[in-house]
Design a protein around this nucleic acid. Structure first.
Length: 556
RNA sequence: UGGGGCGUCGUCAAAUGGCAAGACACAGGGUUUUGGUCCCUGCAUUUGGAGGUUCGAAUCCUCCCGCCCCAGCCA
């Protein structure tokens, strides 16, 4: 484990442990099951589960399912799968809805304490009575009902005697408070909706502020970690726990993750899914965990990324290049190398016997000696990458060109002797001769060859489909839009390019979806779940760094 | 506007009154049978600004400026 300076949350926990305030740390990850998890949630998951693990404590997975109109079972299943995939195990699996009975009782208790009342104001009037930030609100005309009446009304709310929106249960706090959420916040609203877990048992549902602190408290959560936008809710969080005199969980807020060149908001991700701008929540271009997983990104690189970015209270946007770095770093160490030709052109070695096949030792992963070598077949007819040849190459281009000698990786040095074109001028074949003295790729006379090309044997390869993904947006901050413009206007039209008839080595046929490898000189690729034995599909997880491309672009 | 937060390199982010870490990005160079990896080198005389306290300030004090959050019967 590398040494990192501690963040403010871990420091707080350190001192809570040192002071004896707590002897065991309990955290929780509390998603609302109304969408798929994305990499922003990964930061929260890694924080909550990571801290529990580091301090030898516990972390619960708890679904905050207090709003039946937006929540679905589909999402709870995907969320569980995502958390597990990320590499974490929850100590307990809970649902806020498990606590509905207890919450109801606690609400009654507040009524009895004259700290809550049933309010008949319409949503519109409630808003009017609330006042403004700079202007105090006015008390609801229903604020002084008797405890008995409140109890009765609340009971009847629960029994479904009133229509949706007609009444709420409100905490009696202070309509003049400069903290807006203390101006008699709603605790319960009437919703004649069936809930994904409790069915039609309830027609009143608790509001977030009332519910969340109770959930934390009943689970004995010591440190309730959440994002900055809940900072202003903290006084209310504390108010409920204090008035009810139950276990005081402590809420601590940290800055949520923002990532450049993408968007991390359930609302916008949902919009892209619903409008068909992407192919579902698990589209490999999506920043969702299911999308990243499908793309071939290892969970470990996401975890590492989350640890590198740190935890602080300052709003910030992490450069997606840092995430890409974490992906490459991991894959470089672990991905087996393979030679695949994305855009093939035939290369014929004129002086190589037609009936001959040689096998060369191929290093599976130069970063991992234990991965060993494997034999790879070499024949007279090969495929090479079309852009590894230029008819009129510039001096800095050290790949193939007329009369040029290059190395075929692990095989021989070959010299280009000519090309064949079709009537449209497209190159259909490149001819060359090989030097039999250079077997393995080195010349006995010591002559230097700068270019090394990858290749596949035409007779020992088969065509596959490859999906080349790029950044989803071509603007650093897609949300920074012009007047009347939507964030979708900066969607990158080239974020997906489907290429068919790419040639891969025969042995690749035995691999299954999820398999990740490096196509040498091209990038990391993984087998898509849609892949079949008839039609293999590879997703480009990420390109290799490409200083040649950078050089070319700089020239322009 | 009332309240709550936050300002340290292009981007994240340390430094907790003692002489501005690190990572990514970027720029050079070296090694290389992946234009990959790896290895060197450079990259904030200054911490939003102005004053003040101090031998000494990113850290403490004052004022100012900027950005974010709250005014759902969402979470």
């Amino acid at each position: 484990m590398e040494k990192r300076s501690r963040d403010f949350i871990r420091e707080t926990i350190d001192s809570d442990l040192a002071s004896g305030k707590h002897s065991e740390i309990v955290t929780r990850f509390p998603p609302e099951p109304n969408g798929y998890l994305h990499i922003g949630h990964a930061k929260s998951i890694c924080t909550n589960f990571g801290i529990a693990r580091e301090f030898g404590g516990k972390c619960n997975l708890r679904f905050d399912d207090t709003n039946p109109v937006k929540e679905e079972t589909e999402f709870v299943e995907s969320i569980k799968g995502d958390v597990e995939w990320l590499g974490f195990k929850w100590d307990n699996l809970y649902f806020a809805s498990d606590y509905f009975d207890r919450m109801y009782l606690l609400a009654e208790q507040l009524i009895v304490m004259d700290l809550a009342y049933v309010c008949d104001l319409s949503p519109e009037d409630t808003k009017v009575y609330r006042g403004f930030a700079s202007k105090p609100g006015r008390n609801s005309p229903f604020r002084n009902r008797s405890i008995e009446e409140n109890l009765d009304l609340f009971h009847r709310m629960k029994n479904g005697e009133f229509p949706e929106g007609s009444r709420t249960l409100r905490a009696k706090i202070d309509m003049a408070s400069p903290t807006m959420c203390l101006r008699d916040p709603a605790m319960y609203r009437i919703l004649h909706r069936s809930h994904h877990r409790t069915g039609d048992k309830w027609c009143i549902y608790p509001m977030y502020d009332f519910a969340h602190c109770l959930e934390d408290s009943t689970e004995g959560i010591t440190h309730s970690l959440c994002t900055l936008e809940f900072e202003s809710n903290r006084p209310l969080y504390n108010w409920y726990l204090e008035k009810l005199d139950i276990f005081r969980s402590r809420q601590i807020e940290f800055a949520r993750l923002n990532l450049s060149f993408t968007v991390l908001s359930k609302r916008f991700l949902r919009k892209m899914v619903e409008e068909g701008l992407v192919n579902g929540w698990d589209d490999p271009r999506m920043p969702t965990l299911s999308g990243l997983r499908r793309r071939g990104i290892p969970a470990s690189s996401i975890r590492n990324f989350c640890s590198i970015i740190g935890l602080a209270k300052r709003n910030s946007t992490v450069d997606i290049a840092l995430f890409e770095h974490c992906i490459r770093e991991e894959l470089n160490k672990t991905a087996p190398r393979v030679m695949s030709i994305l855009n093939p052109v035939k290369l014929v070695i004129e002086n190589y016997p037609e009936d001959r096949t040689e096998h060369f030792d191929y290093v599976v992963n130069p970063e991992d000696e234990s991965a060993g070598t494997r034999p790879t077949p070499f024949t007279r007819e090969l495929y090479i990458e079309r852009d590894d040849f230029m008819e009129d190459p510039p001096k800095k281009f050290f790949r193939m060109g007329p009369g040029r000698e290059v190395r075929l990786r692990y095989a021989y040095l070959v010299t280009c002797t000519g090309i064949i074109k079709d009537e449209d001028g497209n190159i259909t074949e490149i001819k060359c001769t090989y030097d039999p003295e250079t077997k393995g790729g080195n010349a006995p006379d010591g002559r230097r060859v700068r270019g090394t090309l990858h290749w596949v044997s035409a007779a020992n390869s088969f065509p596959v489909e490859v999906r080349l993904y790029d950044r989803l947006f071509n603007k650093g901050n897609p949300l920074d839009t012009e007047e009347g413009e939507e964030f979708t206007s900066s969607l990158n039209p080239d974020s997906l390019a489907v290429v068919t008839n790419c040639m891969v080595e025969d042995h690749m046929g035995k691999n299954k979806p999820g398999f990740v490898c490096q196509f040498e000189r091209k990038g990391y690729f993984s087998i898509d779940p849609e892949s079949t034995s008839e039609r293999m599909i590879f997703n480009r997880t990420i390109t290799l760094r490409d200083s040649w491309k950078k050089l070319k672009e700089k020239k322009k």
